[in-house]
């Protein structure tokens, strides 16, 4: 198990990877990626039960599905640095003939990816299906998923949320990245959703908040708490309170950096705030 310092070093390197990927092709989504960096590192480096290598079926290991596929830069960086594919391949992000498409896909055979995502609102249904198959197979490992808060505006989520509770899919931990931002502005301004907790609870889920969604220890504690609540007849939801753009000061506290790439000068500023630890690709 890595210690906290090692995990924080990992986080710093992933943040560098995120801004460098997006800068190189002048496109991509740094804001949500930076905000979820600690979550991905905690999940892949500490919490999930993972097998060596990658096979699509993922029997007897925990599975993860990214529903808000636009935060692919953080997903790719953490997958590469967790051993799924060579770190150098991050150089190909969003370029022609790459396995690292703008949004994640199984289509190019990138290890670590089990579903295409990008068109929003589909990931929870997929995670539910995978969770049901685990139960059929007598496989007691877990299914994790991540969703944007703005993404909850897609109706398919609520079909899935209803199904999961009604059918006691209790081997699923769905995390909502509650950063309060979406492309057009704050979620409150674009479409005020009221209390997300109250909604999930009303639908019959077991909900827990991780208030410090950019604190690796707090996330690990939250994920472990969520794990302890599985197998009890209810699907589990984590409300992860993050800050979009976290770790790069000028990208924080707003929606401006949802889908915008830094220029050369901005890249240097961002990198200066996140020291190289594991080695740049």
């Amino acid at each position: 198990m890595p210690n906290t310092k090692q995990l924080e070093d990992f986080v710093s390197q992933v943040r560098r990877d995120i801004v460098r990927q997006v800068h190189q092709v002048s496109s991509g989504h740094p804001g949500g990626s930076l905000g979820c960096t600690e979550f991905f590192v905690a999940l892949y480096q500490e919490v999930m039960k993972r097998k060596e290598g990658f096979d699509m079926d993922g029997k007897d290991e925990d599975l993860f599905f990214l529903s808000n596929g636009h935060i692919s830069p953080v997903f790719y960086s953490v997958l590469a640095r967790s051993g799924y594919f060579p770190v150098e391949e991050l150089n190909t992000f969003r370029k022609i003939d790459s396995r690292l498409q703008g949004h994640p896909t199984t289509h190019e055979g990138l290890p670590g990816i089990r579903i295409a995502s990008g068109s929003l609102g589909q990931g929870m249904s997929v995670a539910l299906g995978a969770a049901q198959t685990k139960k059929l197979n007598g496989d007691d490992s877990l299914v994790y998923s991540l969703h944007g808060d703005g993404e909850l505006q897609e109706g398919q989520n609520w079909e899935a949320i209803l199904y999961a509770a009604g059918n006691k899919v209790d081997n699923l931990i769905a995390t909502i990245d509650l950063n309060g931002q979406q492309i057009d502005g704050s979620t409150d301004d674009v479409l005020n959703m009221g209390s997300v907790r109250a909604k999930f609870e009303a639908f019959g889920w077991d909900v827990l908040d991780v208030e410090k969604g950019n604190d690796i220890e707090a996330i690990i504690a939250g994920l472990n708490e969520a794990k302890s609540r599985t197998g009890k007849g209810k699907p589990v939801c984590i409300l992860l309170h993050t800050i979009m753009g976290h770790g790069v000061d000028f990208m924080m506290n707003g929606h401006a950096w949802h889908g915008k790439a830094p220029n050369d000068e901005q890249l240097e500023k961002a990198l200066a705030q996140n020291p190289e630890t594991l080695g740049d690709y």
């Binding site: 993922g58 997929v126 539910l128 299906g129 995978a130 198959t133 197979n137 899935a160």
Partner: peptide, 20 residues
């Protein structure tokens, strides 16, 4: 799945993972 075809299709996709 109840009257919820979008969820049904997504679930079906997920169920293939693990061999169904």
């Amino acid at each position: 799945t109840g009257i919820a075809e979008a969820n049904m299709i997504g679930m079906a996709a997920g169920m293939t993972i693990g061999g169904k």
